[in-house]
Simulated assay, not measured.
Amino acid sequence: MSMYMTILLIISMGILLFSLGYTLSIARAQRAVKGTQDTAIPDKVKDHAYIRNPVFLTYLICFALLALIITFAALTIRW
């Protein structure tokens, strides 16, 4: 395995571990909320419902990286 791949693997694992820890902390906080009704949605989230949605952000980042990879491959590969 090259040094480049090793660095990418370490960075990816760090991001995955951080995401897992953050998800677990949010899950614990949700268990602590008592009551049968949902809490109010913050105004910042109401104003930017799509920008603050992690699913949409993941798709946006994925397609942006995919476009960069395709552009790079198209510019560097000679047919």
Rank of each mutant, 00 (worst) to 15 (best):
S25C: 05
A29T: 10
Y50S: 14
A64D: 04
R78W: 02
L75F: 02
T76D: 03
S12A: 13
I7V: 10
M1I: 05
V55M: 12
C62N: 11
L20E: 05
M1Y: 10
L66V: 10
L17G: 02
M3E: 15
L8C: 14
Y22F: 06
L68T: 09
I41G: 00
A32K: 14
I15N: 05
F56L: 15
F63Q: 06
L9K: 15
T36G: 00
K46N: 06
Y59A: 14
A49Q: 14
P42H: 02
I7S: 05
D47Q: 13
T6F: 02
Y59E: 13
M13K: 14
A67N: 07
L60Y: 14
L68Y: 05
G21K: 09
D47C: 09
F72K: 15
F56K: 11
L20V: 03
F18Q: 15
G14F: 06
K34A: 06
A49V: 06
S25P: 04
L9S: 15
M13I: 15
G21F: 04
N53S: 08
L65P: 08
W79N: 10
I69W: 03
Y50P: 09
I69K: 04
S12I: 09
I26W: 00
S2E: 04
I11D: 03
G14L: 10
F72I: 13
K44M: 08
I70A: 01
L17D: 03
S12E: 13
L57W: 06
W79P: 12
D47W: 08
A73K: 15
G21D: 01
L75K: 13
Y59D: 12
A29D: 10
W79D: 08
V33C: 04
L66M: 15
T39F: 05
D43A: 13
A49G: 07
L20N: 06
T39S: 09
I41M: 07
R52T: 10
I26K: 01
T71D: 06
D43Y: 08
T39K: 14
I10H: 01
Q30F: 08
A40R: 15
R78C: 04
H48K: 14
F63I: 12
Y50F: 13
T23I: 08
D47G: 09
L66N: 07
R78G: 01
L24T: 04
I51A: 06
A29S: 14
K44F: 14
I11C: 06
A40G: 07
W79L: 01
I77V: 13
F63D: 00
K44I: 14
A74W: 00
Y4P: 05
M5E: 11
T23H: 00
R52W: 08
G14Y: 07
I51Q: 12
T6C: 03
L16K: 15
G35H: 07
Y4N: 13
I11Y: 03
I69D: 03
M3K: 14
F56A: 05
I26Y: 01
T76I: 00
T71N: 10
D47K: 15
Q30G: 04
A73N: 12
T76S: 06
S19Q: 12
I41S: 02
Q30Y: 00
T39Y: 03
R31W: 05
C62L: 12
L16S: 12
L60P: 11
A74H: 03
P54N: 03
